[in-house]
Design a binder for these strands. Structure first.
Lengths: 200, 200
DNA sequence: GAATTAAGCGAACGGTCGTGCTATTTTGGC
DNA sequence: GCCAAAATAGCACGACCGTTCGCTTAATTC
């Protein structure tokens, strides 16, 4: 890997962490350069615009997300254990990836939800991919017999992500010490009400 | 009401709408002044700092929230109907209050979740109040016999807000046309699994 | 209607923003 | 060890940021 690619990677590492705190808009080339002891123009040269930096930062964040959440969860057995692992790893992924500002995507979602453009497009694609991951895991749980055969897996993924979003909100903004417990309970009852043979 | 208070109110009206799009940090005195055909300094004089403007904007948003969500829902009968009304009005409150950028508080939550200071403090207070409203409505549903007597009402409020957050995410960021339907279904099953006499 | 206060304007301040240039240094292949 | 190429620095730019000041105009009070 060439020198340029190395520093580029270092930049993105820090950019992901910084953006999790201040958002992709709050992400600033000057601030980034100061932190990394580069000149503004030197750093700028790696990307050709701020928008490109934002896009690369999102992509880098997605890679870290896969490493911290998706891949580890794949080690858990298909079905219920894997779904639980996805929830667990999701709750821990910001701190585990040293994102002291919480989940990068939750942050970005609020910023870009009504700001059309390439950044939003990428973000939407990533979030849909994530919902697909959840839906596929739910589908596997169905075929394992852990969830009801007639389950709407997209609906399940939707509700499961809702539990995660609320965890993020409660733990980060409200500082609720019961946040994790609450979300686990929410997931439990979500799961329990969809078990096979459940009266619905 | 004096002249000053009138324009001050107009400023806050627009500030709430603008902040819902660009956030409380993206909210800019210059932009605000341009839109309202005021001078920057003239507008600035109404508040003495940007932080004060942010605080007043949050407060103004809270008033509009109460008018658009809480008060209308109180017209519905206690118990299940009122809970459903809270969900319905919450989903519609951004557009109903012409917040084209979605819920001001969801936006602000992402911005300030790790930015200590008076703005975050106020936001946290408002969000806790909102969860209390939900919990109290759930408590009423218990005493009406619509929900199980041993229900953990705070837990219920937590899960219900999660459904709302996911609605916001799905409808605004992802543009999912099924968002409302999904959230209604999520609420239904949340509610159904807590009915009195439900096996848990 | 005069006196007093409030409201708003315009210009300016020091900063930081993203983004261009042009040099200079560093790197890597020969 | 040379030389082209890549990486980085330095500097400047226009724009906008929050904030301050002194001034004018408008509203309120007596």
């Amino acid at each position: 890997m060439s020198k340029g690619q190395i520093t580029r990677q270092q930049i993105l590492d820090h950019a992901v962490a910084l953006a999790s705190k201040v958002g992709l808009s709050g992400l600033t080339i000057g601030r980034l350069a100061d932190d990394l002891k580069l000149s503004k123009s030197g750093l700028f040269g790696h990307f050709q615009s701020k928008e490109a930096l934002q896009l690369k930062t999102l992509e880098a964040g997605a890679e870290r997300f896969i490493d911290a959440v998706v891949r580890p969860a794949l080690k858990a057995p298909r079905g219920e254990p894997r779904l639980r692992a996805l929830l667990d790893h999701w709750c821990r992924w910001p701190e585990q990836s040293s994102l002291h500002g919480g989940c990068l995507f939750v942050q970005a979602a609020a910023e870009f939800d009504d700001l059309a453009g390439p950044v939003k497009d990428l973000l939407v694609r990533l979030q849909k991919d994530w919902l697909d991951v959840l839906a596929n895991a739910a589908r596997a749980a169905v075929s394992e017999g852990h969830l009801a055969a007639d389950l709407d897996v997209e609906q399940f993924a939707h509700e499961m992500y809702g539990v995660m979003l609320m965890y993020h909100h409660a733990s980060r903004l409200l500082g609720d010490p019961m946040a994790e417990q609450r979300s686990k309970a929410a997931f439990d009852s979500l799961f329990d009400s969809r078990r096979p043979g459940q009266s619905r």
